[in-house]
């Protein structure tokens, strides 16, 4: 006898909550759904933890959300995985403080902006001038880590993701 489970509204819900919200829901519904349907998610983001996901994070070569075809970039998939896992803040701090892999650092910066919403942590990284390849609004561009931090601090959108309210800057 099959059990009627009803209509599945949200897939891949996390076991953890962030400020009363299921942490997976920190990413918008439309973004999540497209990520969960992608092959990269199914192959690389299943059954990983904050340590094993590093193997994929160091392979990142660009920052972006979706390709023109609608396929999500690995950067976005790994970001959704991070907010789903919601690792302890000391691990995110470790991601930020390491200097070997710059795309891992950008990933952690975006995490801090969307989940922890800590301006002071972001400001500490305004003196990092390493180059970053960025895909946004259908075009490739070259930018730097400090420009991305500045955008995270001042703007409302980044690579098509809505950045939540962070409080007035000093």
């Amino acid at each position: 006898m099959s059990v009627n489970r009803g209509i599945i509204v949200d897939r891949e819900l996390s076991s953890r909550k962030h400020k009363g919200v299921n942490s997976t829901e920190l990413a918008e519904k439309i973004v999540r759904e497209r990520v969960f349907d992608s092959l990269y998610w199914k192959l690389n983001c299943f059954n990983v933890n904050a340590a094993t996901i590093l193997n994929r994070c160091v392979e990142l070569r660009c920052v972006g959300s979706f390709e023109q075809s609608g396929r999500p970039f690995p950067f976005l998939c790994l970001f959704v995985k991070l907010i789903q896992m919601l690792p302890p803040s000391e691990i995110i701090e470790f991601y930020l403080q390491q200097h070997e892999f710059k795309y891992l650092k950008v990933l952690a910066l975006l995490y801090v902006r969307i989940v922890e919403r800590d301006q002071d942590t972001l400001r500490q990284h305004l003196s990092d001038y390493r180059k970053i390849i960025l895909f946004e609004n259908g075009a490739w561009s070259l930018t730097t880590v400090d420009v991305i931090v500045d955008r995270l601090l001042t703007e409302d959108f980044f690579i098509g993701l809505t950045l939540p309210f962070m409080g007035a800057s000093e």
Binding site: N47, V48, N49, A50, A51, T52, L54, N55, V58, M85, P87, P88, E90, I91, F94, Q98, E100, F101
Partner: peptide, 24 residues
């Protein structure tokens, strides 16, 4: 027989990171 992984600790993250830096 694959098991679901446990959440990682900071020490595990550091160990994986050191290995990746060495490989790089």
């Amino acid at each position: 027989g694959e098991k679901m992984v446990e959440p990682a600790t900071l020490e595990q993250v550091k160990a994986v990171y050191e290995e990746l830096v060495r490989r790089k």
